[in-house]
Design a binder for these strands. Sequence first.
DNA 1: TCATCTCACTTGAACCTTCACGTGGCGCCG
DNA 2: CGGCGCCACGTGAAGGTTCAAGTGAGATGA
Lengths: 167, 167
Amino acid sequence: MTTEDEPPQAPADEHADLWLAPGELASWLSVVRLMTRLPWAIDAQLQRDAELSMVEYMALAMLSEAPEWTLRMSVLAENTSSSLSRLSHMVKRLESRGYVRREADPADGRFTNAILLPAGMAKLESAAPAHVAFVRRLVVDNLSAERLRRLGQDAERILQRIDSPAR
Amino acid sequence: MTTEDEPPQAPADEHADLWLAPGELASWLSVVRLMTRLPWAIDAQLQRDAELSMVEYMALAMLSEAPEWTLRMSVLAENTSSSLSRLSHMVKRLESRGYVRREADPADGRFTNAILLPAGMAKLESAAPAHVAFVRRLVVDNLSAERLRRLGQDAERILQRIDSPAR
DNA sequence: TCATCTCACTTGAACCTTCACGTGGCGCCG
DNA sequence: CGGCGCCACGTGAAGGTTCAAGTGAGATGA
């Protein structure tokens, strides 16, 4: 697919060194569209079927696999790739829905633990099947095992660069 | 090559059929993290160096390659993967900054054309080098040509499923 | 020719994220 | 033991996106 179309007029004269080769550009634009629309699609599915956003689902899922259904806010923030502030607001909302609760770490009051409540676990379990099926249909079962593995590797490779200091 | 890593402990007991196989899950989580953090990184770079968001940059870039620097709002929305409403708000802001203007299509007043202004083109040209360099460092030059091509293909394949009706 | 329908936008409110700052617990150094 | 600084979080305002209506231009049909 895709690509490698020569534009009827070649406007990419002076853009050439400022920009990307046609094939590179096409691939990059596909990635951009994926980054924009895949989260949107997942959010829409979860919102429709479970009234959860993807980050909320991820948070519940992370907690459900943690010992004692408990995680520090900062760890949960890291695991869900969200800022502490965003997480704080989000957990407040989950708390008001009865899915989690917070308490200061008994051992060190500077930390706050987020704790999954039974209602939250129930919510997660009721949301999981449709969500997993959706992820399978869009991604996991849509790519060969090998390609999925490579996709994950590429993602890690890019993430590494994101985390590494400016240069 | 390469190996198939077994996780040291297998926690996926009863989750197994509700969820994904360990390798699948790992790949999927990598993709999720990529979808979350790559846009964030790009936005941060553009914001810092040019006070533009990624969508704004994309919109200017699309317009700059369109004939007469002109595109219908609906076409621009499609090309930037954003809703018409989002685009409308966004273009209003770009308009107030003097980068674009809007006018009703003379041939058919139902359509609205977004038109890139010289100041917008100048903005784009001044933002492009750093942005392109950043994209190269994170993605394009970080993957082999073959892997980049395949990444683009995988993205297209997933996008196709997103666009196809529920089943 | 005029009511009605359709379709591309536009708009304003609600919601969420971001940003900058504020707060409280605990270690540390005197 | 007492002030100081650091660090994990919390909070409120600002800004952007989403959602649900609203608007206006052209097609359609009587």
